[in-house]
């Protein structure tokens, strides 16, 4: 039951909405989304001898994610090297997420409980590293932990150790580096959630005999959960697909999925495998995002009673 004029108004508004969005959509279609579809196609093709592909249907690339052909008898065997790369990626991303939360939550809490005027300043301090080139931050952490780096120099000088710790080019180095570069991604959404938190609830909690630990466990954490999930996703997703940090701090040996994908387009010369790995990574990330959306929506419903 709408008059003609009203219907016309709505139609015009819809048309304008699409029309105004078109340039952005076209640019994204060419510069981001369209190519993703081609990746899917490439994952079903055969590798070319000198890179690129040969046009023939094959499931080799998908098989190649987990299996490799034995050189001698041509049977499929589990590719241990691949598995260890996946395992390292998942392990390091998970550890990074957990650790950034462990230190990021107190930091976000600290910022959110500052007086209003100081808050912007502390937040700004988190934002600067966030926007600083990832490469620069990785260089910086590299300088701290490498063999002749600051940490070893300091420890040697203090006499704590008598030869340099071999941190660089280990899983631990990649973990430290990722924690360092992705920490702001955890703190910012946590801050946003805590900032909305009504501090009077704490008074109510203490009034009802809760200890500090109980207040944290039973009041604060459940209420800021959407922020925790958002922060975890924001750290986990780029960590899983990390390329620069493991390349510099892992030294090419401690590869993660990102480096492994790149390898297929470089020395590996197996574009279809690179494509199937990319699709796999994309699927994992999308699944994580869907879980997030699910959680976020459910919490919203709960909050609105």
């Amino acid at each position: 039951m709408a008059s003609e004029a009203e219907t016309r108004q709505v139609a015009a508004s819809t048309r304008a909405g699409w029309l105004l969005s078109t340039p952005a959509l076209v640019l994204l279609a060419f510069g981001a989304i369209g190519p993703l579809l081609i990746v899917v196609v490439y994952s079903f093709l055969l590798p070319g001898k000198y890179g690129n592909v040969e046009w023939g249907f094959s499931l080799d690339a998908w098989r190649g994610i987990l299996f490799t052909r034995d050189i001698f008898d041509d049977t499929l065997v589990l590719a241990d090297a691949h598995l260890s790369i996946f395992w390292r990626s998942v392990k390091l991303s998970t550890l990074t997420t957990l650790f950034t939360f462990a230190v990021g939550f107190p930091t976000a809490w600290f910022i959110a409980t500052r007086p209003q005027k100081q808050r912007a300043f502390w937040l700004f301090l988190i934002t600067i590293p966030f926007w600083t080139n990832l490469l620069i931050r990785t260089f910086a952490i590299n300088e701290i932990i490498r063999s002749e780096g600051l940490l070893n120099t300091l420890l040697l000088w203090l006499g704590v150790i008598d030869r340099p710790l071999e941190i660089i080019y280990t899983d631990f180095a990649v973990f430290v580096g990722m924690t360092y570069v992705y920490l702001p991604l955890m703190v910012l959404p946590l801050f946003a959630a805590i900032d909305r938190f009504d501090m009077r609830l704490l008074e109510a909690g203490y009034d009802l005999y809760a200890s500090r630990w109980q207040v944290l466990r039973r009041i604060i954490l459940p209420i800021v959960k959407p922020g925790i999930i958002a922060g975890s996703i924001l750290v986990f997703v780029p960590a899983l697909g990390a390329y620069v940090t493991p390349r510099i701090l892992g030294g090419g040996k401690q590869m993660m999925i990102g480096n492994f994908i790149e390898l297929q387009f470089g020395q590996g010369r197996n574009w279809p495998l690179g494509a199937s790995l990319s699709v796999t990574l994309l699927v994992i990330v999308t699944a994580a995002l869907l879980v997030y959306v699910r959680f976020a929506n459910r919490d919203r419903e709960v909050n609105h009673g």
Binding site: M1, A2, S3, A5, E6, Q9
Partner: peptide
């Protein structure tokens, strides 16, 4: 806003649209 039905006149002139 556009009326769903009816007319608005201003100084004797229909200005609904």
């Amino acid at each position: 806003e556009m009326p769903t039905a009816g007319h608005i006149l201003l100084d004797g002139v229909d200005i609904t649209d």
